[in-house]
């Protein structure tokens, strides 16, 4: 399911989005996330999706990279909408003789709009940035925190493991769910409890495999002495200025434009 999102799978290219360094993309995306937490408005939804389309076109990515979300995601959205409707709130609409508050449902739609937009932006960054550059960008961004003795090297090492392991974990998850088909089908009627037990077993197996893989990666990083490495940051180029201005302007717009 996770692997269907094509996380951190670089698509080769020489466009302005590809040429921009990971630092400008990561800082810009962080600014957008902060801006949305200050102003979760419909304006924010519009700006984020406009940015997604703009960067997608500028990066000349093929339409085939767009993931087909798994059915489970749709199911989760439907359930969330159901609870949103239950929560009521203004405005009210008339359904027969009853008044139905749809405020919660509208909030839910806005929430989906922004979270899916931010997810799309994150995927875009993943498709146009080599995964190996992301820890370097994170180290640059977190560097000021060294002054307050935050263990940046360890944080960056953990991030490196996470970035490298995530696609592998996604593949392992896909592998486990595929291997599930080799098992005999449970006899008799299935109820929710069976699905829960099966789901927990799959999750436990993937977790055990992930922990093992993370440990191996951690040991490999430690043996190479890479924790605390002095990253060589490339020079800023014109593409950085363009991407940085586009993302940060969008963030400022989200905060300043009245909703």
């Amino acid at each position: 399911m996770i692997s269907q999102f094509n996380l951190f799978r670089y698509v080769d290219g020489t466009t302005i989005v590809h040429r921009a360094d990971a630092r400008s993309k990561v800082v810009g995306l962080t600014a957008l996330v902060f801006a949305f937490s200050f102003s979760p408005s419909w304006i924010a939804v519009g700006i984020i999706w406009a940015l997604v389309v703009l960067l997608f076109v500028a990066a000349r990515l093929p339409v085939s990279v767009i993931p087909r979300p798994p059915r489970l995601l749709y199911a989760a959205m439907v359930i969330a909408m159901f609870f949103g409707i239950l929560s009521g709130g203004e405005p009210f609409v008339s359904v027969g003789e009853r008044q139905l508050g749809i405020g919660g449902a509208i909030f839910q739609i806005r929430f989906f709009g922004v979270t899916l937009g931010l997810l799309a932006l994150s995927l875009l960054i993943g498709w146009t940035t080599k995964a190996a550059d992301l820890p370097r960008a994170a180290e640059w961004m977190l560097r000021p925190l060294r002054w307050v003795r935050v263990p940046i090297d360890e944080l960056v090492a953990a991030l490196t493991i996470a970035v490298r392991a995530l696609p592998l974990v996604a593949d392992e998850f896909a592998l486990v769910t595929t291997l599930w088909r080799t098992r005999p089908k449970r006899e008799g009627p299935r109820d929710v409890r069976h699905y829960l037990v099966d789901g927990m077993d799959v999750a436990a197996t993937v977790t055990a495999a992930s922990v093992r893989r993370a440990r191996e990666l951690g040991e490999a990083i430690e043996q190479r002495g890479s924790v605390g490495i002095a990253y060589q940051q490339p020079r800023w180029v014109f593409a950085d200025a363009v991407i940085f201005v586009a993302l940060v302007s969008a963030a400022v717009g989200i905060v300043l434009v009245p909703s």
Binding site: L175, L179, T182, D201, A204, T205, A209
Partner: peptide, 12 residues
């Protein structure tokens, strides 16, 4: 019948 290299992923 299938036995994969990372057998742990089969033993759920």
């Amino acid at each position: 019948g299938l036995l994969v290299q990372h057998t742990r992923l089969q033993l759920l």
